[in-house]
């Protein structure tokens, strides 16, 4: 089994500019390591993340998608993350209904001061997704190159 390539998941992390992206920067400044599998996309607010982006990521071969925003009540735009919370609750429940593994999606609130939480969250998420193995159920085989 030695020659089987170790599974490295593709993780897309959407981070809001004001809290979570800054939290990710802080994790970097504090040199708090997390796997390189995590790639961050900066969005102004977690409420900018359209469920289509998440489905798109899975379709194109992502193994996990995590969405990070300011803590409820701390949104830079005051209410954005409240909408995010509802939208993602519903989307994730639907994905679950379709038999998609629940651990492939996650929403986490990370403030600009929570670099450690950011790193810990990413470590935990990557671990869970790695345990699930490659995403088969939502990827579009045509997009595999």
């Amino acid at each position: 089994m030695q020659d089987v390539k170790e599974f490295k998941p593709v993780i897309v992390a959407f981070c809001c500019n004001w809290c979570s992206y800054a939290g990710a920067d802080l994790a970097g400044s504090n040199r708090l390591a997390y796997p390189a599998d995590v790639k961050i996309i900066r969005v102004p607010c977690s409420c900018r993340v359209n469920p289509m982006f998440i489905l798109r990521a899975f379709q194109r071969g992502a193994d996990g998608v995590i969405l990070c925003g300011c803590h409820p009540g701390d949104c830079h735009y005051s209410t954005g993350n409240y909408y995010t919370r509802r939208r993602m609750s519903m989307l994730f429940s639907m994905l679950d209904f379709l038999g998609i593994e629940r651990d492939r999606t996650r929403v986490e609130w990370v403030s600009a001061a929570e670099g450690a939480k950011f790193a810990a969250t990413m470590n935990e998420f990557v671990e869970k997704v790695t345990a699930l193995g490659p995403n088969k159920r939502l990827e579009d085989l045509r997009c595999k190159q």
Partner: peptide, 22 residues
């Protein structure tokens, strides 16, 4: 409609487990 609305104490996405989910 619920998706263009919110309340401050909505549950977290991780807690919204309705029926399904192993």
């Amino acid at each position: 409609a619920p998706l263009v609305n919110f309340s401050l104490d909505d549950p977290e996405p991780s807690d919204v487990v309705k029926g399904g989910f192993d």
